[in-house]
Design a protein around this nucleic acid. Structure first.
Length: 125
DNA sequence: AGCCTGACTTTGT
DNA sequence: GACAAAGCCAGGC
């Protein structure tokens, strides 16, 4: 692995207009329906595993991203819907997950580890 | 240019 | 097992 960073975009002449957020969006949008992932997993894939916060922070701007980012499929390491409060309505995230056949109990995803979608694994195939 | 904040995670008490 | 603190990075002011 790279010593400095594992970010695949690091060693590329990417346009300056490219933001860290867009990397996150790209990954989140690739999350299969009915699956969920964690901020840390995405962060790890992007190379910023030491800063899972940045993923969450990126999601903050995701509200303004086009197309819309399925942020409801992103939960914390415990499968808890920590970001639900940031949605249009606190119940929206839970509702969206249920529509994808994901069971949510007490604001957390049931069988989270089963539904867990790791970009570092799925996208590296 | 510098300080603050934040949708996380891990470790320690 | 619950609570507290630290670390991390990038964007906003």
């Amino acid at each position: 692995m790279n010593k400095k960073t594992t970010n695949p975009r690091e060693n590329s002449t990417a346009p300056k207009t490219y933001s860290f957020f867009e990397d996150v969006y790209g990954v989140v949008r690739q999350i299969p329906k009915g699956r969920v992932t964690s901020y840390g997993a995405i962060a790890s894939y992007l190379g910023t595993k030491l800063s899972a916060r940045m993923v969450g922070w990126a999601m903050n701007a995701a509200h303004n991203a086009r197309p819309k980012v399925p942020a409801h499929r992103v939960v914390n390491r415990n499968g808890l819907l920590t970001g639900k409060a940031h949605f249009a309505t606190p119940s929206l995230m839970e509702e969206l997950l249920k529509k994808e056949k994901i069971t949510v109990t007490a604001d957390k995803v049931t069988d989270f580890k089963q539904l867990f979608w790791d970009p570092a694994v799925e996208l590296s195939l």
